[in-house]
Computed example of a mutant assay.
Amino acid sequence: MSATVQLLPLGDAAVLLHFGEGISLATHGAIQAVSAYLARHPFAGLRECVPAFTTLAVYYDPWLVSQAGHSPPYERVAELLRQLLPAALAPTPPAPAEVVEIPVCYGGEFGPDLAVVAQHTGLAPAEVIARHAAPEYLVHMIGFAPGFPYLGGLDEQLATPRRAEPRPVVPAGAVGIAGPQTGIYSLPTPGGWQLIGRTPLRLFNPEAAAPTLLQAGQHLRFVPISAAEFATYSGRPPL
């Protein structure tokens, strides 16, 4: 995998590692491996790593990097990354995956587009719910808004196009489908995904030590709950 990783400048304070064109478990695993390796073995000046579907952005402090050598910061960081890629991508036994349970109240006021998805897929609303709650999903990346997870693992039969007209505001916690993907709105934002449910969990809390509930590389499962359970949910602080 290391031979296919491209390194590109991203502004004047980041290196973009490009792992390929297609979304796959192998690409995701490589991105997570390099990100985890840098967390364990940070270089002087490393600020943060931001994983995406096929890339990893490595942000650094140019001033601190420049103090560690004579070459320009980008060239120095790029060379450091080239040197560590073989070790970071070396095969290792997979760690047991923690599965985060996300309670969701499907349909009704919480999922106004459930009927649209049912009609598009030819399934009964109850079957849409059952199929959506069945898989174990992988968080490929966090993006669009702080804490918004892009998930892999949606049942192919549930794939439904986005709405023709996006909503001006989608409530935080809304669970939606857009094409072959499903995700959870972490903040009230405009959005065009088909909304099939809502979770009472708070996915983004800027005042918390860990502001985002989910991280790239985690696994989750949706657990159907009733409207009464939504109203009285006593887990992580509700939205």
Rank of each mutant, 00 (worst) to 15 (best):
V58C: 04
A130G: 08
E156T: 07
R163D: 07
F148M: 04
R131S: 06
V99W: 09
H120Q: 14
G111R: 00
F144D: 09
E109S: 13
P149R: 06
D155C: 12
L64F: 06
H120P: 04
Y106Q: 01
A124S: 13
A145H: 06
T92H: 11
Q83R: 14
D61F: 05
P73A: 10
Q181S: 09
A159H: 03
A57R: 05
L138R: 12
Q181N: 10
Q67F: 14
P93G: 09
P94F: 09
F110H: 06
R163P: 04
Y106I: 01
P161R: 09
I102H: 00
R82D: 13
P112A: 09
E101A: 13
T121E: 07
Y74R: 13
A52S: 14
H120K: 11
V139S: 03
P62S: 06
V58S: 02
H120F: 12
G147A: 11
D61V: 05
A57Q: 10
P62T: 06
P86Q: 07
V128G: 00
A172P: 02
T55R: 02
G122Q: 15
H41K: 14
G173A: 12
E79I: 08
A87N: 04
L85F: 02
G153D: 11
V175H: 00
A172S: 11
E48L: 12
M141V: 10
E109D: 10
T182E: 05
V58L: 08
L56T: 01
T182A: 08
Y137Q: 11
P73L: 12
V117A: 08
L84S: 07
A88S: 03
V169Y: 12
L81H: 01
Y60V: 03
S71Q: 15
T55C: 14
E109R: 10
A88G: 02
G143L: 05
R76A: 11
V116C: 11
D61T: 06
Q157G: 13
G45K: 01
G173I: 01
P125A: 05
T182G: 03
P166V: 08
A174N: 03
M141C: 10
L84R: 06
E136N: 11
T55P: 01
S66T: 06
V100H: 11
G153A: 12
H140Q: 13
P168M: 08
A145W: 08
V116H: 09
G147M: 05
E136C: 11
R162H: 08
P135T: 05
R82E: 14
P62M: 05
L154Q: 02
A174D: 02
E48Y: 13
A126L: 07
S66A: 13
G179A: 14
F53S: 15
W63P: 02
G143M: 07
H140D: 09
G153K: 04
E136K: 07
Q67D: 10
A90F: 00
V77C: 01
A130H: 12
E101P: 08
G173D: 03
A44H: 14
V170Y: 02
E165P: 01
